[in-house]
Amino acid sequence: MSIKVIRAGMQTSIQDLGRFGFMDQGIPRSGFMDPLSATLANTLVGNVSHHPALEICMLGPELLFNQDISIAICGAVFEVERLRPHSPPEPIHNNLAVKLKAGDKLRFAKRLSGARAYLAFSAGLAIKPELNSHSTHFGAKFGGFKGRALMAGDEIPLTNIKAPGSNQQTPTEEKSVLGYGGRYILRCVDSVETSLFSRQQQRDFYHNKYQVGQASNRMGLRLDGPPLSALNIADISSSGLLNGSIQIPPGGLPIISGVDGQTIGGYPRIANVISADLFALGQLVPGDQVQFVKVCKNQAHTLLVSQKHYIKQYTS
């Protein structure tokens, strides 16, 4: 009982909602960069939201399924085909539960929009979680599958496979899919050092249009654009850095912390992306346009509560 990796893709890894409570040891939460899409995928196959799933980044894999199983793909949109012996290839669409038979392959081809797709499967992982989570930490090489991205030839061992139910949709049923437009508004609240920035710097930050830079990954997203004017800020005391923090290093270009980001940082933070918008960080592709909009903390909490209600519609 396994999923066999025929072609790995750029960075296909096992993640879940993350590991909590270890940041004081320098261990970030890791987990899904877009927990919203991952939760929807898990829900479609009958899993709880913290169930491990595959995170597929930019360039997709080809996978062989050795048993009947349900899968669902959410998040970034790829052209995906199901290959079955003696059958013509069938397109597989996002946001559907799909029944696969033993021997079926899924082949990810062209990426159409977004950065990360989530492939949930109706089975448990026969792998021991590390520090309470299946999330892969690439830097310290633990969690997930041998602490690394998947490689061709890997077999992901499965357990407790739930056979596909009869009421699930078939892969041929076409559904329209929401894509990701490449232009994002990220809502922000104040951070620890916001008050150290001048009014002009804050105005510029919320006025500028930024592009997602090439050197962006799960640790952080580097933005290109007009640098903020020279920071008149003395060295600050390094302190706890949370996912979504927007640091301004001496060069004046923002860096947004990702789920694998460092746990303590020394650059001043001008703002933090609100929790309800963090999922979007997982879908940003180099070249995408980003603008920041300031909201107050109460709005941020209201938005998070309504997002939870939105997810609940699907999960209950």
Partner: peptide
Amino acid sequence: DLIPAYQSLTLGFNLDSEWAA
């Protein structure tokens, strides 16, 4: 999450908790 540092302690709240509000 609790992150002690040189001159600070950072608290990361549970996203399911309304306590932060």
